[in-house]
Design a binder for these strands. Sequence first.
DNA 1: AAGCAGAAAGAACGATCGTTCTTCTTGGAA
DNA 2: TTCCAAGAAGAACGATCGTTCTTTCTGCTT
Lengths: 188, 188
Amino acid sequence: MTTGATERTHPRERLLDTAGRLFYTQGIQAVGVDQLVREAGVTRATFYRHFSSKDGLVVAYLEARGGRVEEVVEAILAAHRGRDALLAIMDMIGDNLCRPGFRGCGFLNAAAEYPDPTHPVRVRIAEHRRWFHDVLRTVVRDAGHPDPERVARTLVVLRDGAMVGGHLDDPRAIRATLYEAAERLLTS
Amino acid sequence: MTTGATERTHPRERLLDTAGRLFYTQGIQAVGVDQLVREAGVTRATFYRHFSSKDGLVVAYLEARGGRVEEVVEAILAAHRGRDALLAIMDMIGDNLCRPGFRGCGFLNAAAEYPDPTHPVRVRIAEHRRWFHDVLRTVVRDAGHPDPERVARTLVVLRDGAMVGGHLDDPRAIRATLYEAAERLLTS
DNA sequence: AAGCAGAAAGAACGATCGTTCTTCTTGGAA
DNA sequence: TTCCAAGAAGAACGATCGTTCTTTCTGCTT
């Protein structure tokens, strides 16, 4: 193809990295294209050659963010099974929301800024959420639990609430709450 | 004072009503002052006579929204006690997120658009959340539960997750999940 | 060596942002 | 009756919004 040995970092990657940082820390609507191209060291023309619009970059931003999450979860699933896998996932989430700079779930924050459920951004968010729910339900079923659907739904509610609380309340307390609640749910 | 018999609806109330509708359904940054004053039937000069800025209106919007929530909760507390009161609150939340036009928690959505935790908007959100947590902890303690703090924190996480899921997933499933989870938590 | 795709640099587009201003009109209080 | 605060109407402010454009220059491919 046309790959070759093009430079060290492509403008597209610099834009995605910058978007990943700015969109998450400041919100999406709050970040203008001016700031985006300035901090990425890219011109507007280059921006619009790689992305159809700002919303196109937003979708790519969620794509990249979701990809990283899915990688981490897959790695956990490769190392744990059943109940252990579920608790490992909750552990990973709890650790995430205690990390400095945590500002909630990038998907939930984005959803708050896009009211139209048919918008590409919202569609991507829905896909990510269904993927996570399906992963949980599968693992709960493999763990031999009698009602995987209910448990998976409860775990998703706990996760969403923890992401919110980890941002707005005390992260360490939320981490403990999330883990204990998941433990009790899976023990019942 | 200077009340008298001024007209039927004050411009301030019309602005607050319009803000309550537009901010909730479209997001805050997405609503401009133009649209605000147009749909409220008010001029810009009148807007800035009643509110110091757009952010001032945002704070007033959350104030009004929080006031309504607090009234509903107080009414429940006047009619129920202990475990019944907690389940009645969860019931009310579950019904809310099944109502047509539900778009998540107005406070959580606003928080997603205001990254700075010292901003007046975020301060008002934090106040509302602490009030709700305190209410839950008090009621859980009155119910005779040995660990009111942990239970209250778990209920807040469940509520936040339910508000998110009621918006992004299936509201009826989330309502059932919330109620069952709360029931099990309070029975343990 | 020639040529072409892509990036840099920056001007420019109309539209909208939040805010302030002037001018005219009205209605309740002194 | 007099007066003044407040609302209506609308122009205008500079700034920024997302998007498109032209021009120049670099670097890989054939």
